[in-house]
């Protein structure tokens, strides 16, 4: 396990290096001068030049690149060009909100999807199974940025039972997390169903039935435990997709997370903030996948890392 972890951590560093390089080059090569955007239309050319100088934007790109890395190794992600706030503290301030929303979406998706997957597998080729299929099709066909406003129209405008946007209470979390988690629920439910069906056809399940083990035990203990392994993989991989989707949902629901920090930062060419946010998201994504790999070993005794 230790060797595996070491190898994965080394891989992680090379992935992060790649991510930082690509983001750095893209954001610096896209037209748009941060100093001019900051100082506005009427700024004196001398002031724009002075600001470019003070922000270090007049240095060659390669120097800026290595300088960014040098600071990164000291744990310094720089300061936002626009607000002057340290990038790390700006991200840390907003990340809990993003994490809460992502986790709630994941929670919603799992509590809806896994039972649906189990039931549709148990009721294979019945009306319930077909309803499950329809649910999945609807789920994967509705993008979160469309579903969100539709849910707001129903639950906030028509019924008036949930707030349109904002944060601060569980009420505020319901619609954004459901909008984000719904498509994931559709995927997980199909995956759970397929996996359960495969496992239920195995010899050991037939044997269990033959010796009189109750259906409850067969489903929840013997079948589900084995069927859940590919589902965990999907959940882990989808976490990255959720982190991407959460950015749009945060804008729609005015949720004060990383998305609300990142999008305006891109518009204003706030290089340190954009680099910091992307780097942070990449780190989280990689770690979640690493955790998923480690969880495998616990839920499937056949998997051993060496």
């Amino acid at each position: 396990m230790n060797v595996f972890l070491r190898r994965r951590l080394l891989g992680l560093i090379s992935v992060l290096f790649g991510v930082i390089t690509i983001v750095f080059l893209i954001i610096h090569l896209v037209p748009g001068d941060p100093a001019r955007i900051m100082l506005g239309e009427g700024a004196l050319p001398s002031d724009v030049e002075a600001l470019r100088e003070s922000l270090g934007l007049n240095r060659p790109l390669i120097v800026q690149y290595f300088d960014f890395f040098a600071k990164l190794f000291q744990g310094d992600l720089g300061r936002s060009f626009n607000t002057g706030q340290p990038v790390l503290s700006a991200i840390i301030e907003r990340f809990p909100a993003t994490l809460i929303l992502t986790a709630a979406s994941m929670f919603f998706a799992i509590i809806i999807a896994v039972p649906i997957g189990i039931i549709t597998a148990a009721k294979r080729n019945t009306v319930i199974d077909n309803l499950g299929m329809i649910f999945s099709l609807i789920g994967v066909s509705m993008p979160a940025f469309w579903l969100g406003p539709i849910l707001v129209l129903i639950f906030s405008v028509k019924l008036g039972i949930l707030p349109v946007s904002g944060s601060g209470s569980i009420k505020h979390l319901v619609l954004p997390s459901f909008s984000l988690g719904f498509a994931l629920a559709a995927i997980i439910s199909r995956m759970t169903r397929a996996s359960m069906i495969e496992v239920l056809d195995q010899d050991y399940i037939r044997t269990a039935r033959a010796i009189g083990v109750s259906e409850k035990i067969i489903f929840l203990k013997h079948a589900l435990r084995n069927a859940i392994i590919p589902v965990v993989t999907i959940v882990g991989l989808q976490f990255g997709a959720l982190l991407g989707g959460v950015i749009i949902i945060e804008i729609i629901f005015s949720w004060p997370g990383i998305g609300q920090l990142l999008i305006p930062a891109i518009m204003r060419r706030d290089y340190p903030l954009v680099q910091g946010c992307i780097l942070f998201i990449a780190v989280v994504y990689i770690f979640v996948n690493l955790i998923v790999d480690i969880i495998y070993a616990y839920i499937d005794p056949r998997i051993k890392y060496s």
Binding site: V152, P163, S165, G166, S254
Partner: peptide, 18 residues
């Protein structure tokens, strides 16, 4: 002051009295 970046959300927010 509520920060609401999305135009549709702003519209719905005033509709519902938020």
């Amino acid at each position: 002051y509520r920060i609401i970046p999305d135009a549709t959300t702003r519209l719905l927010s005033i509709d519902t009295g938020e």
